[in-house]
Design a binder for these strands. Structure first.
Lengths: 218, 218
DNA sequence: GTCTATATAGCGATAGAC
DNA sequence: GTCTATCGCTATATAGAC
């Protein structure tokens, strides 16, 4: 029942919490269930993290920090050339690191699903903390995308950026569950296949012209 | 504190549940909170619905039935002409009814957010019931979209359909919350504006060619 | 059909021994 | 840093009066 017996208490709690939050949600997951699964004492969560909310925050910040740093490094590298950066590459820099978390055997696939789920419901107490993790990433990428979409107003870029987040997040959330949804057509473990399909979908979507209120192209 | 005092107990419970589930999630919302908000007795939920899970199911089936029926009717109307149906119109038939729920003053906007959130996390006990609501809609629309994407294998269509669901669901979930995310650029209440942007994004995304494993177009 | 009262269980959090 | 024990509270669900 307990997992990763070689790790220290704090890490075991984080991994157990990640798994249970993903399967049951935050509200429905008790500290008792977490500590039992981690094979540690009930009081350990409050000792190491202080509260359940603080534990939730720790679950996110532990992985979101490195993930968003990687995104920014990839974007930096692209923009360092000084030339016009292709839209596909920007999208890939944003989407790739998130989906490639699935390759990390130590809980990567689980956190990816958790992140995909949480992106579409940052309400309640953890909301601020969660969104704060993207304070640097969102403006950098909207700006980079906006530079590719010449003449498209910032407001339009924000809309399309939201659509991109949604397509990516849902893909992450459904990871490991696509065989069922597709009638066996899709192999959920095919991360690179997902990227090869998602990046063009988003890139072409980003380029699409907004319809005018009367139904014509704008 | 209680809402819609003119309605009967069952309806008041459903509306209160919808609101609280949307803001706090299923696990974190207690029957006490629901009955208190509805202004009815604590025992009323179990009398009218039998259990909390059955209430959750009722919250969804009440609105998802009519919504998906409308989608199918729109698709029927498009296909009745016998001519080739434009991709944009198919996408609009799927996305439009969901986003236009926001126009229904009796809880439409709230349920839209709830639906957007739940689409990306159908895990646990309500999963089967929730997905079952789409048994007819998903195959009909994937088939219709596949007919527009001549020569694209069914597997590819399923992938892209998932991206579409994600873009739409996230838009629904973020509804009412976009001012904050966009720094005041976007008016969350602009439903038709959302549709005018989302439909082209998805349509062009659906048409995008999957990259080959070596990075070339397939 | 609505109420009070309660059974039974689980919750987050903490005090204090080791 | 880990443990037991427990406080104070809330949960879902139900029994039985009205």
């Amino acid at each position: 029942m307990s997992e990763n017996e070689g790790l220290d208490t704090k890490e075991r709690i984080l991994q157990a919490a990640e798994n249970l939050f993903t399967d049951q949600g935050f509200g429905a997951t008790s500290l008792r269930a977490i500590t039992h699964r981690a094979g540690v004492n009930l009081a350990a969560v409050n000792y190491h993290f202080g509260s359940k909310d603080a534990l939730i925050e720790a679950v996110f910040s532990r992985r979101l920090g490195p993930l968003n740093r990687e995104r920014l490094e990839l974007l930096d590298a692209l923009e360092a050339s000084g030339e016009m950066v292709p839209l596909d590459r920007i999208v890939e820099s944003f989407v790739g690191p998130a989906l490639r978390m699935a390759h990390d055997p130590s809980g990567g696939p689980v956190f990816m699903r958790l992140l995909g789920q949480t992106i579409s419901q940052p309400r309640g107490t953890i909301r601020e903390t969660f969104l704060h993790q993207f304070d640097e990433v969102f403006p950098r990428f909207t700006a980079a995308i906006g530079r590719c979409l010449d003449g498209v107003p910032p407001k339009e870029v924000v809309w399309r950026f939201m659509f991109m987040i949604g397509a990516m997040g849902h893909t992450m959330a459904m990871s490991g569950d696509m065989e069922l949804m597709s009638g066996g057509l899709i192999d959920s473990g095919d991360v690179e296949g997902a990227i090869r399909r998602l990046v063009p979908f988003i890139s072409e979507g980003l380029r699409a012209e907004t319809l005018a209120p009367d139904g014509a192209k704008s």
